[in-house]
């Protein structure tokens, strides 16, 4: 339910080079509150870089990124902005020295300055939301890949972000564990979370996203609704890519 005008996330002309390599060449798109968009494309085309620029883990060379009324590239309070953006990535990045519960609590206690007891309650609630009440006191090394990623999602959710970024969240998982993570993500989408996802999981894209963005060589080649993208892609490059994916993965995951 939109209660404000204008998109939640607005990216304009994003540019980034690593050395001589022009990775992002003028990327522009936007997300309204509650929308889910999926970015697809060949490896190395800068999909992850787009996400990394949004929470400024990577500093863009040009362009603007607007989160509501704040311009992220030039803002001076990036740490506060990062609290509004949840980030889940391929390697999970769980803190090895903390239990699942404490992983989720850390951000609340140290960044949001939540008192310990409240933080614990909130953390437990989030872990329950992702279905992990039984491993609260387990350490990351004791968890399966799917469990680790769900803890990572709970950890990001605990900060009550406005926007969730997912960078190939299931690419490092064994096939049988992918489903549990995608289910959590689908539930999140259903509950109205604004999400930007980079993934190869076409089934997820078709089922949940409002728009699919196809990127190649640092540019957006095509963006359209899932139905249109899969049935009648306009750009020949898009068709080629989807065909390749089809060969490799078949039509849609789960």
């Amino acid at each position: 339910m939109k209660d404000r005008d204008g998109p939640l996330l607005n990216i304009k002309g994003l540019k980034k080079s690593f050395g001589d390599n022009l990775v992002l060449d003028g990327i522009s798109f936007s997300l309204d509150t509650g929308e889910n968009k999926v970015i697809i494309g060949p490896s190395g085309t800068g999909k992850s870089t787009v996400l990394n620029c949004i929470n400024r883990l990577v500093v863009p060379d040009g362009g603007e990124i607007w989160l509501e009324d704040t311009e992220i590239v030039s803002c001076s309070n990036i740490n506060e902005i990062r609290q509004e953006i949840g980030y889940v990535f391929q390697g999970f990045g769980l803190f090895h020295h903390l239990t699942a519960l404490r992983n989720v609590m850390l951000g609340l206690i140290r960044v949001k300055k939540t008192p310990k007891n409240e933080a614990k309650e909130q953390a437990i609630a989030k872990l329950e939301q992702v279905g992990l009440l039984d491993v609260l006191d387990s350490y990351p090394a004791q968890l399966s890949g799917g469990q680790k990623q769900r803890v990572a999602i709970a950890r990001a959710l605990a900060m009550e972000p406005k926007l969730m970024l997912f960078d190939e969240p299931t690419s490092a998982l064994d096939p049988e564990l992918i489903g549990e993570v995608l289910n959590v993500m689908k539930n999140l989408a259903r509950e109205g979370m604004t999400m930007l996802v980079v993934t190869h999981e076409m089934g997820f894209a078709r089922a949940v996203s409002d728009e699919i963005i196809f990127m190649e060589k640092g540019k957006i080649v095509e963006k359209s609704s899932p139905e249109k993208m899969f049935e009648q892609p306009e750009n020949p490059r898009t068709r080629e890519f989807l065909f390749k994916l089809d060969e490799l993965y078949g039509k849609g995951g789960e």
């Binding site: 929470n55 883990l57 980030y87 990045g93 803190f95 951000g107 960044v111 990572a152």
Partner: peptide
């Protein structure tokens, strides 16, 4: 990845 996660949560460098 540890730094990545921490910064994404909004933690400062010293934290």
């Amino acid at each position: 990845d540890q730094y990545k996660s921490a910064y994404s949560l909004g933690m400062k460098r010293w934290q």
